[in-house]
Design a protein around this nucleic acid. Structure first.
Length: 572
RNA sequence: GGGCCUGUAGCUCAAUCGGUCAGAGCAGAGCGCUCAUAACGCUUUGGUUGGGGGUUCGAGUCCCUCCGGGCCUACCA
């Protein structure tokens, strides 16, 4: 048995996440967590919300409620949706938690003591009307190059030129439109990542088994220009972790908070403490996952994230960990994902284009989405959701291959032998052949899941399901029954056992359906099969079962078309 | 501008270190079956691997170049 620590990138607090966000980190992380638990490993699976920063403050202001209240409400919504998607987090924490405040301040203190924090006075645009400093992209104006009048302070979207806010002609606040802007000096803390460059480079170089997407992004940042740059880790905001040096105030930093990207990854650790506190456990319980000197030396730590998160997880967060000078656990493997696009374009939260987690569950149960998203996970390049593709996958894989197999076996048994596992007959060559095939396939399935090759695992699982139909077609119990009813009984007993086996193997992908299948078979033993032959003899003759309702409904053309229209843009 | 990823059958994707005839699923065609959600099974059509050039006994894979798609580029997160 191994101890496996799994974190999914924590979604930003604003709004309901779309399916692209879901498949980019939380869902594959859940698949891996469920699989590893099923194999008997001890798993700690952590996620939460990333609550700080300018967008949260603005959204709360727009909604006319205090930002703390706004975040609490949004956290509850996101938590509820995670639960409904069966994301099996051990803790869905909050980066605004007191635990994270203390840990963030603690790490900052450690970094300062190790000479890795520098105070820098910089000039930034300040908006008097908004009463806040404006990040570059919150400044709008006319592009000096192309004359586009809605260029942002970081880049002109029209001509793609990189800009400085001061380049803009007639700059204005993107928040209020106010042109009453001035340049003010402000003092900030910088993390001296440049001082850690060699250690980070060496560490990244040692990770030769990481996805190329992960390491290439890290290397780019390490080598770009003069190499890894120092990074500001504080902001002039109200909402966030107040800048303190551990327990003590930090002179000159009054009224400032840490930058979200400094405190958000620390929340992985803090959420584990939130879990321990919630369970009434001692600190040793969470520290044994994170401190290699307190029990975490045997922990394997795997992170899941979208590609936009990679620099922070390969460089900034490790810089915090390494720079602390303490034996905190560094990540062992980073699985990163490309983007899922929606029907020829990007998912867009602002335009309401695409499908959001709440809407998805309004029209179909979680397993439909889990199966499609995981079997099409954007592992090697951006991938695309289309309704046609979704319809085909659901109807073919779930309804025809798996659902129909369960249906034909249970209904045939009910009509010929009644609703109990029939006795009589013995396994013959046909059964032994399927067992041999399954041994090969299950081994491949396990290999793919262990390597976090999600689409390959899904393909293998589909082939395992299809094997049941091939077997049944070939064994043809409906013909055999007339002459040799005991042989038909053996075939059906074997097939009922296949249903149970499929439930166990499929549970990481489609947990709700797996539970239905187990219940229908009245099977309690959900342990991962060690021996396929034994697993296929586990339902004893005489054990009653129920014929379940169809496991999956097909998506009709009419439904597909109406959903296609409904989600084309303009979220209601 | 710079960096990275990507282009394989109508569609979605495979193909270890460069090594048999580039493979699956879906869609299409044909046959079979009748237990089942008009479901299942078997057979089968379909590819100048984006274009061009090069290295090699051998290239989807390596190199150059052109064309297309995407991402990142450090003060959104």
């Amino acid at each position: 048995m191994q101890r496996i620590l799994i974190t999914s990138a924590i979604p930003y607090i604003n709004g309901i996440k779309h399916l692209g966000n879901l498949v980019g980190s939380q869902l594959p992380a859940d698949l891996y967590a469920r699989y590893m638990r099923a194999r008997g490993h001890e798993v700690m699976f952590i996620c939460g919300t990333d609550e700080h920063g300018t967008p949260a403050e603005l959204a709360a202001a727009a909604a006319g409620i205090p930002v703390a209240q706004y975040c609490a409400d949004m956290w509850a919504k996101q938590k509820r949706l995670s639960d409904r998607f069966q994301l099996s987090f051990d803790k869905f924490g909050r980066s605004s938690s007191p635990q994270n405040h203390r840990l963030t301040q603690y790490f900052a203190e450690r970094l300062a003591e190790n000479g890795l924090i520098e105070e820098v006075v910089e000039s930034q645009l300040y908006s008097k009307a908004d009463g806040r400093f404006l990040p570059d992209r919150y400044v709008e104006g006319t592009c000096p190059d192309c004359g586009y009048d809605r260029a942002r302070g970081d880049q002109c979207e029209n001509c793609t030129r990189q800009l400085d806010p001061t380049d803009l002609i007639e700059p204005r606040s993107a928040i209020s439109g106010s042109t009453d802007l001035e340049i003010r000096e402000t003092r900030h803390l910088y993390l001296r990542q440049s001082a850690l460059r060699e250690r980070l480079e060496e560490w990244i170089a040692s990770k030769d088994d990481w996805p190329i997407l992960t390491t290439s992004i890290a290397r780019k940042w390490l080598h770009d220009g003069d190499g890894l740059r120092d990074r500001g880790i504080t902001r002039d905001l109200e909402w966030g972790v107040p800048v303190r040096r551990g327990e003590r105030p930090w002179p000159g930093m009054e009224g400032k908070v840490f930058y979200v990207w400094f405190d958000a990854p620390i929340e992985y650790i803090a959420a584990t403490k939130e879990w321990a506190d919630g369970e009434g456990l001692e600190d040793a319980a969470w520290r044994s996952w994170w401190r290699t000197d307190e029990g975490a030396s045997d922990v394997r730590y795997v992170q899941f994230m979208g590609k936009d998160n990679v620099p922070f997880h390969t460089l900034s967060f490790p810089a915090t960990i390494i720079g602390s000078g303490e034996p905190w656990k560094l990540v062992d493997y980073i699985k990163s994902f490309n983007y899922l696009n929606y029907d020829g374009g990007q998912f867009s939260t602002s335009l309401g284009r695409g499908i959001f987690m709440d809407q998805a569950l309004d029209i179909l149960p979680a397993d439909y989405w889990r199966w499609w998203l995981l079997s099409h996970a954007p592992e090697n390049s951006d991938s695309e959701f289309t309704w046609e593709n979704f319809q085909v996958s659901v109807n073919k894989d779930l309804a025809d291959i798996l659902g129909n197999f369960v249906s034909r076996v249970t209904k045939f048994c009910r009509s010929k032998f009644g609703e109990a596992v029939p006795g009589g007959g013995e396994p013959e060559d046909r059964e032994r052949a399927l067992i041999a095939e399954l041994e090969t396939r299950v081994a491949a399935y396990q290999r793919h899941l262990e390597a976090i090759e999600i689409r390959k695992a899904a393909n293998e699982l589909r082939a395992i399901w299809a094997g049941g139909n091939e077997y049944l077609q070939d064994a043809a119990p409906w013909s055999v029954f007339r002459e040799r009813p005991e042989r038909a009984a053996a075939i059906i007993r074997f097939s009922l056992n296949l249903i149970r086996l499929y439930a166990v193997l499929s549970a990481p992908f489609i947990p709700d359906t797996a539970t239905k299948m187990m219940k229908a078979m009245r099977a309690e033993d959900g342990l991962w099969p060690k021996d396929i032959a034994a697993a296929l003899a586990s339902l004893p003759p005489g054990r009653s079962f129920t014929v379940p309702d169809n496991l999956f409904s097909k998506i009709s053309d009419a439904e597909r078309e109406s959903w296609q229209k409904r989600f084309a843009g303009g979220r209601e």
